[in-house]
Design a protein around this nucleic acid. Structure first.
Lengths: 335, 335
DNA sequence: TTGAAAGCGCTACCAT
DNA sequence: ATGGTAGCGCTTTCAA
């Protein structure tokens, strides 16, 4: 144990033979300080191993080098990856990341946000549980919705509908005509937008004379939901059964793969399965999962770029998803 | 946008017709305040919706209601689950969680720790990348090693060796005699302790006349490492090939399952595979993974219990792992 | 039991 | 360009 930090700006000023104001100026950006004084102060700082007291700065500036992040569930691999990228970028900028989970509960989320706001963060990144904000927006602290849009708040997201349409195109190009869609909880915008985008594209193709049909099932975004719903889908008698399952998340898709295997069905021989997100696990499971990739890194960089003002973008920035074809989709046997 | 918070203790004092000192006393624990005054102040607080300024408190107390958490990698499902539990418990106690990732880099970890310490957290929980601490310990801030032991620092961990031995017992009881062990990176204590515990139990059984043997391979804790090493193990000609693979992490084990399947080998018919950790995914993959569960929730509760002083434990608290038998292990065909 | 006031460490303003 | 100093909001003495 070394002894507690107690070196203040005063000690530095004393050693450098200048006033505290001068030391503060050296510390700050716009150092209008003479060269020799500057060096003297910097030497004193180094020699004393002086670290500025963040609490004092926070009190003075009413702002602290912290970024808040609220995700629905950090054990969701997609959000873990997002948090990972954000932490890395924040750390590069000398900012700490305060993490909390809303568990997809809007009331809890509001409480978490209020708690984080009391720490006077530079900004708060929120993956909203509900797209209709149910809390007063902070004036000074910057709030940015991430991955899911929220009314009245700027956002950085993937275009859910257009991305989901890619799944339709892939399956149809493979020859699938009966598709089951496993949607997410309808209170999340993303679940709704993905579903709408999916169905719209189906309808569009039908309008062009295609014989494709889609049936919608809904659950949560997690593994268990996907497994359970897929079991229901696959227990139908063969001729009427869907030949492909499109899921609103990779977790659901992985659950669906498990259900198929449990029921003795081969993926993709007996049933094609496509996910959404492209979590790391997607290319590690058996079979490797075809999915729609959300550009996590780009989204994280865009969000941080906005916070640190390096960029001046429109309020709602949407990225495009990308189809990643792997081994869980193929043409239906009867095609 | 509502307007910025500006209600201070002064406003409350004014409205309640008391001094700021009295308001502060009401706010604190040991409120030696007359009943009617107390109520008056509390009413003023409620009416004004006063929230104490955390930065000012932090400056005064040199301490803030924040818990630091440094994990090697938040995208590792085990650490995500740990972070999730910790965040929940911290939130219950009115503390925020500052998260950062060391990426298993001791130097980076030291920097992250220093950065977090500057925020004057109530405590820092560390899953150390290296068991030999390479940074000065803070005096006042409480440092607690979690999941992995570290010399000179109190810790809350699972007994790695004894838990790994459970895997040996399970496989041997199934009749396996040639076992391959996929270890983790030897710079982490847990990898070493698991491996040592595993091999010690093997040696012990050999001493009793058992014909069991183990061969050790080493990689990282991740999916890819497990897959790659399993591929090597399984590419040996059949008679000499191991009939069971024990991995140092569930991620490795899942990678191994993928390798086996890719090579046309059935799990557990052709090869038994057992993991370590019991991440959520373990019971969702195909086949459901037999593994050794680490008691994440208990560990998180123990850690938080110590931080909040509810408990007075020995310096190094070790929990026992638990064998969870699922579908990825069976008797070898030749047994 | 309550009020008054010092002071935590820092930044920014006003003098010089 | 530099020094001196007020004051951010709070807790905790010290008096009364």
């Amino acid at each position: 144990m070394i002894e507690k930090q107690k070196i203040t700006i005063k000690d530095v000023a004393l050693r450098a033979g200048v006033s505290v104001g001068t030391v503060s100026r050296v510390l700050g950006q716009n150092a209008t300080v003479k060269r020799n004084i500057l060096e003297r102060v910097q030497r004193a700082i180094a020699e004393l191993d002086y670290r500025p007291n963040l609490a004092a700065r926070a009190l003075r500036a009413n702002q602290v080098n912290v970024i808040g992040l609220i995700v629905p569930d950090i054990t969701n691999p997609f959000f873990a990856q997002l948090a990972n990228e954000l932490e890395r970028l924040a750390s590069d900028k000398g900012h700490a990341l305060i993490l909390s989970s809303s568990h997809n509960d809007a009331a809890h989320e509001a409480r978490q946000l209020a708690a984080i706001l009391e720490h006077k963060p530079r900004a708060v990144l929120l993956v909203p549980a509900d797209d209709k904000q149910n809390f007063p927006l902070p004036k000074k602290a910057m709030l940015l919705a991430l991955d899911r849009r929220m009314t009245g708040t700027p956002s950085v997201t993937t275009d859910q509908g257009a991305s989901a349409a890619l799944a339709v195109e892939h399956l149809v190009s493979l020859g699938h005509q009966r598709i089951a869609y496993i949607g997410g909880p309808t209170q999340t915008v993303n679940a709704r937008e993905r579903e709408a985008g999916f169905l719209d594209r189906i309808a569009q193709l039908q309008g062009k004379g295609a014989t494709v049909t889609a049936e919608v099932f809904r659950g949560k975004f997690d593994f268990a939901s996907g497994e359970q719903i897929a079991r229901e889908i696959l227990s139908r008698p063969e001729p009427a059964r869907a030949t492909a399952i499109a899921a609103a998340s990779d977790q659901q898709a992985i659950g669906a793969v498990r259900a198929a295997r449990d029921m003795g069905l081969g993926v993709p021989q007996d049933i094609s399965i496509i996910g959404f997100d492209d979590i790391v696990l997607a290319h590690l499971i058996v079979p490797r999962l075809t999915t729609i990739r959300q550009p996590v890194i780009e989204m994280a960089e865009e969000a941080m770029g906005r916070i640190f003002g390096a960029t001046e973008f429109e309020n709602d920035q949407r990225f495009m998803g990308e189809l990643v074809v792997r081994d869980s989709t193929a043409s239906p046997r009867t095609a």
